[in-house]
C-alpha cells in the first residue's frame, strides 16, 4: 500500500472497500501536554530515543542527532526517561 499506487484500468481496482490513505493525515501533535526538548551538548547519538518512540516521531539528522517531529509527537515522555545522558527534558506546552 505505498503512496504511488495508481490503477490503469477498472479491472485493476480491488473488489472490496480498501483503505488507500495513510494515517499521516492525523496530526497527533495536538494531543501533547509536554514537549520533549533535546540538549545537543549532552547527546551522545546513541539512538535510544529513536528506538523507543511509539509514534515514529523521532528521526536522526545527517549528523545523527535526534530531531523530534512535533507534528506527531504525543508527548508520552518515553524518550526523556530512556535517555542515558538525561539530554531530553519535558517542558510544559503553552
Amino acid at each position: 500500500m505505498s503512496d504511488e499506487i495508481k490503477w490503469k484500468k477498472e479491472s485493476d481496482m480491488p473488489l472490496m472497500a480498501m483503505s488507500m490513505g495513510r494515517m499521516t493525515v492525523n496530526k497527533t501533535g495536538s494531543w501533547r501536554n509536554l514537549r520533549p526538548v533535546i540538549e545537543k551538548e549532552k547527546c551522545i547519538k546513541c539512538g535510544i530515543c529513536w528506538k523507543f518512540c511509539p509514534d515514529v516521531s523521532i528521526r536522526l539528522d545527517e549528523e545523527d542527532y535526534p530531531v523530534v517531529d512535533l507534528e506527531f509527537c504525543k508527548g508520552c515522555g518515553i524518550c526523556a526517561v530512556e535517555c542515558p545522558k538525561d539530554a531530553i527534558t519535558m517542558i510544559k506546552e503553552e
Binding site: R22, M23, K51, P54, D55, S57
Partner: peptide
C-alpha cells in the same frame, strides 16, 4: 550510525494509539 534494529520504517506516524502505547511499539518493531 550503527543501528541495533533495522532502520526501515513501515509503520507511519499519526496512528491512534494512546501516549506511551506498548502495542504501537510492538507493531513498529
Amino acid at each position: 550510525m550503527k543501528y541495533t534494529i533495522p532502520a526501515q520504517e513501515v509503520m507511519c506516524s499519526g496512528h491512534k494509539a494512546c501516549q506511551g502505547c506498548g502495542a504501537a511499539l510492538a507493531m513498529r518493531y
